[in-house]
Amino acid sequence: MSPAATLPRSQPMSIALIVGVGDGLSASLARQLAARGHHLVLAARNTDKLADLEAETGATTAAGDAADPAAVCRLFEQVDGIDGDLAVAIYNPSARVRGPLVDLDPAEVRRALDVTAYGAFLVAQAAARRMLAQGHGTILFTGASAGVKGFAQSAPFAMGKFALRGLAQSMARELHPQNIHVGHVVIDGAIRNPGRSEPADKPDSMLDPDAIAETYLALIDQHRSAWSWEIELRPFVERF
C-alpha cells in the first residue's frame, strides 16, 4: 500500500480532491473514495448538480472554473481549510470541439485547450506543492484514446489530451522520486453513465464507471517499488 493509503487514524484526515465532477466516473470515484474514509472535496463549475452526491458522501463542494487561476487558488484555499493531508487529487475535465480543421473557431479551440490541458496544469501544480510539503500523495489524470492517436475532425480534443498525457509523463518523471505518485488513465471507449447504456445485444461494450474507479483505486494502492505512470482501459470488444 502507498503511504497515502495507509495513514494511521491518529494522523490528520486524508483528503481526496476530484475536479470536474458529474454523475458518471467522478461520482463512482467519489463513492469509492468516501467508503475508504477520505474526506472528499468535489469541484465543478456548477455544484447544484452535486447536492445528492454531497449528501451521500459527506463531501465538501467547491464551485469554479478549473481553467481560471484565481478559481483554482480559491479551490485550494478551501482544501487548506480542512484539517488533513491532501492524499489524492484527480483531474477529469475536458472539452471537445468537432469539425473540419479549416472551419474551427479559434476561440472555441483555445477554450477547449484551457479546460483539457491548462486547467490540469493549474490543479496539478497546486496539488503537487502541497503533497511535496507533506511528503506523499497521488495525482491522477483522466485521459482518452485521443491522447495517443488523433482522430479526423477532432484536432482540439487530440491537442488537449496529448498535452495532458505529456504533462502526466513529465510530472511522473519529476515527482516519483519525491514520493508523489502521478498516473494517467487512458479511457479508450464510451463510459456507461446514467441515461446512457449499451444496446442489449452488446453487453459490456461500454466501460462501467464503477469498474474504472476500481482501477483508479488500484493505482492509488500501488507500492512505490512498482508504480505505473499510465494505464489503458477499454471494453473487451473495443478495437485498438
Rank of each mutant, 00 (worst) to 15 (best):
D23S: 13
A89T: 06
D52K: 05
A55F: 02
D114A: 13
F76A: 01
D65G: 08
A55I: 01
G84T: 03
E77Q: 14
P100T: 06
H39W: 12
K49I: 08
R110D: 14
L25C: 08
A87K: 01
L29W: 00
R110C: 12
A67F: 09
Q32I: 11
D114E: 15
V88D: 00
V109T: 14
D80I: 05
A34S: 14
A95W: 02
A59I: 07
A51I: 06
H39S: 11
V41M: 08
P69G: 11
L29R: 00
I90P: 00
D85M: 11
L40V: 06
D83C: 04
L53Q: 03
D114V: 03
G22V: 04
T61C: 10
T61H: 05
Q32N: 07
A51R: 13
D80G: 09
V41S: 08
L42D: 06
L113H: 02
V88R: 00
A70C: 11
A112T: 03
A66R: 00
E77F: 05
D65A: 13
V102N: 08
R45N: 13
E77I: 05
P93K: 04
D85P: 02
D52G: 11
V88S: 01
A62H: 11
L42C: 13
A67P: 04
I90Q: 00
R74A: 11
L50H: 03
L104T: 04
V72N: 02
R45P: 02
S26N: 07
E108S: 14
F76I: 00
P100K: 12
A34K: 01
E54F: 01
V97H: 04
N46A: 14
A51F: 08
A35I: 06
A112R: 00
G99K: 06
P69A: 12
A70N: 12
D105C: 13
Q78V: 14
D103R: 15
L33F: 10
R31I: 09
A66N: 07
R31H: 11
R74M: 04
A59F: 05
C73M: 06
T57S: 10
H38D: 09
A55L: 02
T47A: 13
A35V: 06
H38E: 10
A63F: 03
G24R: 04
G24Q: 08
I82A: 09
D52Y: 00
V109E: 09
R96M: 14
D23T: 10
L86Y: 07
A35P: 08
A35W: 02
G81W: 05
E54I: 00
E56N: 08
D105A: 15
